[in-house]
Computed example of a mutant assay.
Amino acid sequence: MNTTDRTPADLLRSALAADAARPLVTFYDDATGERVELSVATLANWVAKTANLLQDELSAEPGDRLALLLPAHWQTAVWLLACSSTGVVAELPGSSADPAAVSATASAADLVVSGPDTLEAARACSGERVALSLRPLGARFPQPPDGFTDYAVEVPGQGDHFTPYSPVDPDAPALVVGGEELTGAQIVERARADAGARGLGPGSRLLSVLPYDTWEGVSAGLFAPLATGGSVVLCRHSDRLDASALTERKKSERVTHTAG
């Protein structure tokens, strides 16, 4: 990857320039049977649309705090990179966090993005609220939650290309995870170090069953593979698989490394 990249959004742009067609995120939900594979180009398109939604429809500005109340999921990866693209700070309390802590994160945030299981906690946010159904193929809610924008309804009409109104500062806060605040530059630096420690390189395929509530989880589940030209097989509800099924998945997905 480009050594001058200093934010996760920079890493995505470099990946797009290098090989837009290669897989970047393959997602499994073993509670629903869903499998989604997103190439670099497809993920980048979702990120651009989401960043336009953030900047133009939700009026988010650099430095705003966004409570990201989502599990490890391909759409969470989209939101993390969209926040990086706009300079919005993504705060991940984690799906397994105490409900009171999740609600406190939402209350202190400028805007909130919630899955179906955290809608009540998300109502503590007095700013814009966005809800994701997390249904297969990014489907909308059968009935939109009261007081929330349905992401699946709003995002398709957004532009396919994104340009921030002002350049994103790589040394500004970008992510809060596990109680630690990181800048965009620190995310990139740590992701590269993690990739080196795991032995990742171009073409590596990392299977992760870790939640997105720690740095290790978001690094393995997105940033480290992105930083090195690799890809991730992100598994949710993998505890429903037996050992032989997980072994078969690693074989069929050509997994070279595992996390969790």
Rank of each mutant, 00 (worst) to 15 (best):
H73L: 13
H73E: 10
H73N: 11
H73V: 04
W74A: 12
Q75R: 15
T76M: 14
A77I: 02
A77E: 11
A77W: 02
A77C: 15
V78A: 14
V78G: 08
V78K: 06
L80Y: 07
L81E: 05
A82P: 06
A82K: 04
C83V: 03
S84H: 01
S84E: 07
S85L: 04
T86F: 11
T86P: 05
V88Y: 04
V88N: 07
V89M: 12
A90Q: 06
L92H: 06
L92C: 12
P93T: 06
P93N: 11
G94K: 06
G94Q: 05
A97T: 04
A97M: 13
D98S: 11
D98C: 08
A100E: 14
A100K: 13
A101C: 00
V102C: 11
V102G: 02
V102I: 15
S103A: 15
A104L: 12
A104N: 08
T105P: 02
A106P: 04
S107E: 15
S107P: 00
A108K: 08
A109V: 09
D110R: 05
D110C: 06
D110N: 12
D110W: 00
L111D: 00
L111H: 02
L111K: 01
V112A: 13
S114R: 03
G115S: 09
G115D: 06
G115W: 05
P116F: 11
P116Q: 09
P116M: 12
P116Y: 07
D117R: 14
D117Q: 13
L119E: 06
A121K: 01
A122W: 04
R123P: 00
A124M: 08
A124W: 04
C125A: 14
C125D: 10
C125R: 03
E128W: 00
E128P: 00
R129I: 03
A131D: 10
A131T: 01
L132S: 04
R135C: 02
R135H: 10
P136W: 04
G138H: 02
A139R: 13
A139K: 10
R140T: 11
R140G: 15
R140Y: 00
F141Y: 15
Q143Y: 02
P144Q: 06
P145E: 08
